[in-house]
């Protein structure tokens, strides 16, 4: 095993993703060969419907691959059971939480479930981890609030805190800034960046905030109709990958500004 291979925490091998029903197979993307190194902030880009969420769902074992395989820490994903996976990989999803009376603290504390005993007792050790997660995400003042009282931006940070409390090497977030204004979007991005730097965790997010991601993410996985690009922002710019992201009528990628700009006629 070479040195760089040792640091690969997630790898896909000829992966095809999509949906399987009794009658037919709907392939959304195929031939996906990507690898993610430990301690990187990875942005998954692609236009609506290209399969970002499906890819994230597949590498987090929410749904099965149609073909090929996913390896996490050199072990096939299909060989993990729920319990094992829960200490390696945590999720922040886009789905709405069912309406309950959970407080922010209780919600974050649920992140400790993979480690608590059968009756879910929180030992001082667990409390320390929970409070650390709350402190990192700066939600201490919200601790006793119910989660439905929060703004979208606050809730997103609470969900990130929950994933942090789960104490996993990899955190996967599906469009964490979907409903946020530019200030809160930036806040979430810089929080994730900070966490990668301070904790050495690997964070993979899917996002539409291309301009912001180019400034903050270490690595990119870019899904386009033609092919799948991976690499740093500079590598992708050199390959003209960003031009593939969207149809070219309205916006274009400006290489010197390193962002998308509106086309002027």
């Amino acid at each position: 095993m070479t040195n760089s291979e040792k640091h690969i925490v997630l790898q896909t091998d000829n992966l095809a993703i999509g949906y399987q029903s009794k009658k037919q197979q709907t392939v959304i993307a195929s031939n996906i060969n990507v690898s993610v190194e430990k301690g990187k902030f990875v942005a998954l880009l692609g236009k609506n419907g290209i399969g970002k969420s499906t890819l994230l769902r597949t590498i987090s074992k929410v749904q099965k691959p149609l073909q090929g395989s996913v390896k996490i820490k050199q072990k096939k994903l299909s060989a993990y059971n729920n319990q094992e996976l829960s200490t390696t990989l945590s999720l922040v999803l886009t789905e709405r939480l069912p309406l309950s009376q959970l407080t922010v603290f209780e919600l974050v504390a649920l992140g400790r479930q993979p480690y608590t005993n059968w009756i879910d007792k929180l030992t001082p050790d667990h409390l320390k981890k929970i409070l650390w997660a709350i402190e990192q995400t700066e939600i201490g003042h919200l601790k006793d609030k119910r989660f439905y009282e929060l703004s979208d931006g606050q809730l997103q940070r609470v969900l990130i805190a929950r994933a942090l409390a789960q104490d996993t090497e990899i955190i996967i977030l599906d469009e964490p800034t979907a409903h946020l204004d530019i200030h809160h979007t930036f806040k979430v991005f810089s929080l994730l960046k900070k966490l990668v730097e301070n904790t050495g965790k690997t964070i993979i997010i899917s996002t539409h905030e291309v301009n912001l991601a180019i400034q903050l993410a270490d690595e990119f996985i870019l899904l386009s109709e033609k092919e799948i690009y991976t690499g740093t922002s500079q590598e992708l710019i050199n390959q003209n990958a960003f031009e593939e992201l969207f149809p070219k009528e309205l916006i274009s990628f400006n290489k010197t500004l390193e962002q998308f700009v509106i086309k002027k006629n």
Binding site: V62, N82, T87, L93, E95, L97, P98, L110, P114, D120
Partner: peptide, 24 residues
């Protein structure tokens, strides 16, 4: 007594419960 833990994780929905290691 044996389902207190899964019950609490179900409050977040099935996908989160699964990602918390619960055998749904």
């Amino acid at each position: 007594f044996f389902v207190i833990k899964p019950l609490n994780s179900f409050l977040l929905g099935e996908n989160y419960a699964k990602s918390l290691g619960i055998n749904i």
